[in-house]
């Protein structure tokens, strides 16, 4: 009884759900603010993403005539819920360990593909040609970055498993615990190729500028999101805010989960998230141009894939 209560609490309130949403909105606000500062603008207030959400909740949702309504309105909901669940599965080192009964790293990987699929479904259900272009681009991006990501995760799991004297270990709790006793993978030269591949993966997954090709507003008018308005669009914003928390949190868990125990662990985790968002997202976002889809596809099949295969080989041999 209490167990299932904690499970629901984890998904709706503390590490998932509300907490992750607040965190994600704050990170997005910081990102927009820093991006503006880097361009020597004043920038929006920190709570701007929250204002946007409240605004969207008050607007009308319009469904295009040619769209299939249940799919059109269901896609954002599924995307947002999947990310809320995923946020409950990512550990906060030293503070929160997810219940292993919910699932481990593999479940997080599966859940991470859901937002991209939701965007694809949304794009094709909207019936708009721009949505269809967004759909095909999103699919190409997913094919490109999903492979390296799986190999990176396999490398981390293998390293942890071998280090513990076993085979692979896909438990995030064990990965975090192993690094906290044996040193973070960030400082482990054997893991550097995997780290590089991961660094290429997350801007693509978060859809920020060198890789925001599916939603490029100047080319395909935000692609899959073009036909959305009001609360449905708001759900997509919720989804992307939660995704930032999940993906960055996953990066922290996989590569540098150093943290003291207790509440200080939570603070250190928040500090790392903010740092990653500012350095890894805002600075990258304002200093790059957008790639073309074929360039991005080729890039992913060249460097991140090579690095992730290399890392798997190195880890297996080391």
């Amino acid at each position: 009884m209490t167990e299932s209560f904690y499970a629901i609490f984890a998904m709706l309130v503390f590490p998932g759900g509300l907490f992750a949403l607040a965190l994600g909105l704050a990170l997005k606000g910081l990102d927009r603010r820093l991006a503006a500062r880097l361009q020597r603008r004043v920038g929006p207030p920190l709570a701007q993403p929250l204002y946007d959400l409240v605004k969207l909740a008050k607007k009308r949702t319009m469904v295009p005539n040619i769209a299939s309504e249940p799919v059109f309105l269901g896609a954002p909901l599924i995307g947002a819920v999947s990310m809320a669940l995923a946020a409950a599965l990512v550990p906060i080192p030293g503070f929160y360990t997810p219940n292993p009964a919910f699932g481990d790293l593999l479940v997080v990987l599966y859940l991470l593909t859901v937002p991209a699929v939701a965007l694809m479904v949304a794009g094709s259900a909207s019936g708009s040609p721009f949505g269809a272009i967004g759909f095909s681009r999103e699919m190409a991006m997913m094919l490109a970055y999903e492979g390296p990501l799986v190999l990176v995760v396999a490398a981390v799991a293998l390293r942890t498993g071998l280090g513990q004297g076993g085979w692979v270990s896909f438990s995030l709790t064990e990965i975090v615990a192993y690094q906290r006793t044996h040193g973070a993978f960030l400082l482990d030269p054997v893991m550097w190729p995997a780290l590089l591949a991961f660094l290429a993966f997350y801007p693509a997954n978060l859809g920020i500028i060198p890789f925001d090709i599916p939603e490029a507003e100047t080319e395909v008018l935000e692609g899959p999101l073009l036909e959305y308005s009001g609360p449905a669009l708001g759900l997509f914003k919720v989804m992307s805010a939660l995704k930032a928390v999940v993906v960055l949190g996953l990066g922290i868990a996989l590569f540098f989960p150093y943290a003291p125990d207790g509440a200080a662990g939570l603070l250190v985790h928040l500090a790392k998230l903010v740092l990653l968002m500012l350095i890894g997202v805002s600075v990258v976002r304002v200093s790059c141009g957008r790639m073309r889809i074929d360039q991005a596809f080729r890039f992913f099949l060249k460097w991140p894939l090579a690095f992730s295969v290399l890392s798997l080989a190195v880890v297996a041999l080391a």
């Binding site: 004043v42 920038g43 929006p44 946007d52 319009m62 036909e227």
Partner: peptide, 12 residues
């Protein structure tokens, strides 16, 4: 953008 404005590509 300091007024919270954002140019958007879609009328919706």
């Amino acid at each position: 953008e300091r007024l919270g404005c954002q140019y958007c590509g879609s009328p919706r």
